[in-house]
Design a protein around this nucleic acid. Structure first.
Lengths: 209, 209
DNA sequence: ACCTGAACACCGTTCAAGT
DNA sequence: ACCTGAACACCGTTCAAGT
C-alpha cells in the first residue's frame, strides 16, 4: 500500500492515540514507531501530519488543558473563581498525570494554555490586583497545581519499610501509600485554602500591591 | 587498553561528570556514551561502577539534595526553620534546574532526601502539629518548591510577541522574560510568605489538627 | 498528497574477550 | 577487577520511491 485514496491518518486520530498511549504507559512509551503501530501504520507516516514528535506531544497537552473549566471566571468573585479553576485544573491533571511535565514549563503556543493564562490574569486584574501581583499569583497557582500533579507525595515513600526504620520520625512512612488520597488531596486542598484565604486577607486590607 | 592497574573510573568521578553534564546541557544530553566520552572511556565501562543509568542520575540527585541546609531545624522556631529551609532548597534547585524532575517524585532511597524529609517532618511534629497535618505541610512545601523550580513562569511566555496581541490582558506577556527574577522569585517568596503566615495563624488559634 | 522501506545517527544494556 | 568492541533492540528523523 503506497497511498490509499482515503487517508489512513488524520491529526485528530494521531493525537487521540497519542493521548491514550501517554495516559496508559507514559511519555516514554509514546515513541513514533510505537504510536504508528497503534494506528496500523509505519513510523515515518506520522511525519506527513506533524513535523516533529514534540508537535504531537504538544497537541496532546493542548487537548488536556482544554478540559480545564475556565468559565468559572465569569460571574464569580475572584476568590471563588480562583478556587474553582484550581480544583478543575487539579482534577484534569490528576486524570492525565503523565503529560504534566510538558505543561509545567508554560503555555507555549497552545491556544488552551494561552486562553487559561488570559482568563486567570484578566480576572485578577479586573479584581483590582496590580499587574505585578496578578502575575505573582498566577505563577504561584501554577507552581502549586503542577507541583502537586507531578508526583504523588504519598507514593514517594515506596521503598522497603525497613529503610524508614533508621529515621525516628519516618518509621511509618511506608504506610502513606495506603492513604494516598487523604495525603495528596489533603495537602493540595490545604495549600489552596491557605493561599486563597491569606490572599483574600491582604486584599481586604487594601494592600493591592 | 583492557584493564589499567589503576582504575580509570570511580563512582565519584562519574557522578561529578554526570552532574556537570546535566547542569550544562540537560538530562537528555547525559547519555551513557556521551558521559563516557567526557570521562575518556567507552560507554559500557560505566556498567562496572553503576548497574543502570538511573542509578547514576539518582546519585546526582543525591549530591544536589545534600547541599540543602537542614541544620536550620535546630534552634529555630518552626516558622523560621521552615522558611530558611525552603529558601535554601529553592536556591539549590535554582542552581541545578535540570535535575528537578528527578526530585519531584520523592526522596526515593537517597540518604539526603530521607534526611531532609525526616528533618522537616520531625520539626513539625515537635512543634505540635498532628501527624496528618505535618504530612500535609511537608507535601505542600514540596509542591511549591519543586513546582517553582520545574520551569520559569516568566520564560514560559517566550513565543513571538505578536502571538499575545490576540489576548486582551496578555499583550505584554513577552516582556515578562526581561523581568524573570522579579517574576519568578517574587512569586515564590509570596507563596512562601502566604503559606507560612497563614499556617502560623492557624497554629496560634490552637487548631493543630 | 500520503504511505512505504531503507538508511543515518543516535539510545540503554549485555556479554564474551582481553589483561 | 575493570575496560573493550561487537551486538541487540530500540530511538527521532530524512528521503527517494511508489501510487
Amino acid at each position: 500500500m503506497a497511498r490509499p485514496r482515503q487517508a489512513l491518518l488524520t491529526k485528530e486520530r494521531i493525537v487521540e492515540a497519542a493521548a491514550a498511549l501517554i495516559d496508559a504507559e507514559g511519555l516514554d512509551a509514546c515513541s513514533m514507531r510505537r504510536l504508528a503501530t497503534e494506528l496500523g501504520v509505519q513510523g515515518p507516516s506520522l511525519y506527513n501530519h506533524f513535523a516533529t514528535k514534540a508537535e504531537i506531544v504538544d497537541a496532546v497537552a493542548e487537548v488536556v488543558v482544554a478540559q480545564v473549566d475556565i468559565s468559572v471566571f465569569h460571574g464569580n468573585d475572584w476568590r471563588e473563581a480562583l478556587r474553582l479553576w484550581a480544583k478543575s485544573y487539579h482534577a484534569v491533571l490528576a486524570a492525565h498525570p503523565n503529560i504534566v511535565p510538558v505543561l509545567a514549563t508554560g503555555p507555549g503556543r497552545r491556544p488552551a494554555g494561552l486562553a487559561m493564562a488570559e482568563a486567570v490574569y484578566g480576572a485578577l486584574i479586573d479584581a483590582g490586583w496590580s499587574r505585578a501581583r496578578a502575575t505573582h499569583i498566577g505563577a504561584l497557582m501554577r507552581y502549586l497545581i503542577t507541583g502537586s500533579a507531578l508526583g504523588s507525595f504519598a507514593l514517594g515513600f515506596d521503598a522497603d519499610p525497613e529503610l524508614y526504620d533508621h529515621y525516628p520520625h519516618l518509621h511509618r512512612a511506608h504506610e502513606l501509600a495506603a492513604h494516598r488520597d487523604a495525603v495528596d488531596e489533603g495537602a493540595f486542598q490545604l495549600g489552596l485554602d491557605l493561599l486563597i484565604t491569606s490572599l483574600s486577607d491582604r486584599y481586604d486590607l487594601g494592600v493591592r500591591r
